[in-house]
Design a protein around this nucleic acid. Structure first.
Lengths: 109, 109
DNA sequence: ATTATTAATCGTAATATTGCAATATAAAAA
DNA sequence: TTTTTATATTGCAATATTACGATTAATAAT
């Protein structure tokens, strides 16, 4: 095992889980926060800012890029990363809908 | 390796990551959605509702309980689970702050 | 052309997660 | 008391994730 049984869940449930999972590592949280603050960042800066090896940061960036949360522009030998606002907003909407659920009746416990 | 370097991140970053990670599995998303809809649920119902083995559901419930997102009341031989509204709200606040970040300047890419 | 510089990729080790069968536990029913 | 019912725990196999050194690739600088 060790593999999620995606088939038995709804698309909505899987989407929420995939997005949440991407935010489920402090390095990726730190990367995103830094991109918001600085508003664009070369990969090397992140390696210094966060205390992880270059290969590790690159891997986390790849994950965020695959999900579309960030995008990268090649600038000479370096790559400038920044938040993809459109996709970030889409994610926000999905997660907000989930987080803002309300209890319909009284709570039993 | 395979273990997160928690020490090098801020408490805020770690908290966001831990909460997001808990939502990062479709089974836990499904459990939470069902608890919101039904507003209380014995574990057995969830085993039927979701298509996973009893032991697996129990494990996911334990994780959610440890984080404080749900609480369980023993009712005879069964256990009635429901959302812990206070902690759910606390989580919402933490995640909202993170998700609602705004880009200060123009985006470069 | 050669030598930095920078980021991606590969390979690998260590640990974590997912899922389930089997078993344990604890209360209810017989 | 014995049996049933419902959930938790244990142990284990399979897969995923995290992290990093080493290498590669691609451009810039000398």
């Amino acid at each position: 095992m060790g593999l999620v049984k995606t088939e038995i869940f709804t698309d909505d449930q899987n989407e929420i889980a995939v997005l949440a999972k991407a935010l489920g590592h402090p390095a990726r949280v730190a990367i995103l926060q830094h991109l918001f603050k600085i508003n664009s960042c070369v990969c090397g800066d992140l390696v210094h800012e966060i205390g992880l090896a270059q290969a590790t940061i690159s891997q986390h960036l790849k994950e965020l890029k695959n999900l579309g949360l960030i995008k990268g522009n090649i600038e000479g030998t370096s790559v400038c990363y920044c938040i993809d606002n459109t996709n970030w907003s889409k994610m926000k909407e999905v997660l907000f809908l989930f987080l803002n659920q309300d209890l319909s009746k009284e709570n039993c416990c």
